[in-house]
């Protein structure tokens, strides 16, 4: 089976941060897998996904995405490649544009710059955008402006934009943490289902163990920039997740002194 993501001994610190956001991270994801990155806030999930999307610079280790190695010294966006799609927690849509326009924006990287600037998508581009809208169940919203949509509808638009890129890898950073539980399940089912239908690899982050368990075949647990476990979903036990979310134990005496 071919490899979608290969990471070997990756470390990275944000400029100005004392502690590294990623520390000696290694894993490999095969093409077509659906994997969840699980971990509490601050674990390094966003950092890892942004790095895989080619938006960070100056890390150490080896990273390759869809068979092509990333260069840690190239200023971002180093991997401005249409075949990796990204779904953002806060949707990242152009609010005043229509749903169709936002989905067509996913095609911009696939067009010649001139065609993109002229704003003239081909029949093929439109067809792909319409298919993406239909797959996300929002064909009837095509002409609506995004600022009139609900959160769940917005994330559907964002996924449709991602699908319009014809991605072979879908990265999603907490795609459902702004949504209510019922909406969250719908959206994750849509995301992982669309990836599977296209034979694409999906890597999504979440801080909710039950969602990761339900929608991923494999779960990578992160904490403090390190990988704590990396197991098939069927082997995930509650002790492991409990360890992931264990409170940092306060040093003795601090609690008392803080009150006085």
């Amino acid at each position: 089976m071919s490899t979608a993501i290969e990471i070997d001994d990756l470390s990275f610190a944000h400029t100005g941060a004392d502690l590294p956001a990623l520390e000696r991270v290694s894993f490999r994801i095969s093409a077509g897998e659906s994997v969840a990155l699980l971990g509490p806030s601050g674990a390094g999930k966003t950092t890892l996904l942004a790095l895989l999307d080619g938006r960070l610079q100056g890390w150490s280790g080896r990273v390759s995405v869809l068979g092509a190695p990333l260069d840690p010294d190239r200023p971002p966006p180093s991997a401005r490649r249409p075949d990796t799609g990204f779904v953002f927690q806060e949707f990242a849509l152009v609010e005043r544009s229509t749903v169709l326009r936002n989905v067509l924006n996913g095609r911009l990287g696939r067009m010649s710059p001139l065609r993109a600037l002229m704003g003239s998508p081909t029949k093929h581009d439109l067809e792909i955008a319409r298919t993406a809208l239909a797959d996300c169940g929002i064909s009837d919203l095509a002409e609506r402006r995004v600022d009139s949509l609900s959160g769940g509808q917005r994330q559907r638009v964002a996924i449709a934009r991602c699908l319009a890129q014809e991605p072979r890898l879908i990265l999603a950073d907490e795609p459902v943490s702004n949504l209510d539980p019922a909406r969250a399940c719908e959206i994750l089912a849509l995301l992982t289902g669309a990836a599977r239908a296209r034979g694409a690899t999906a890597l999504f982050s979440s801080h909710q163990p039950d969602l990761a368990r339900r929608f991923a075949q494999r779960i990578i647990g992160m904490r403090d920039g390190r990988i704590v476990f990396d197991v098939p979903t069927s082997e995930l036990n509650d002790n492991a997740t409990a360890e992931l979310y264990r409170e940092v134990e306060p040093s003795p005496g601090i609690g008392l002194r803080a009150v006085s």
């Binding site: 999307d53 938006r55 966006p77 953002f88 849509l93 993109a116 934009r161």
Partner: peptide
């Protein structure tokens, strides 16, 4: 949205 378009290759 600017980052999103950048990520899409624009």
């Amino acid at each position: 949205p600017i980052a999103a378009l950048e990520s899409a290759g624009a």
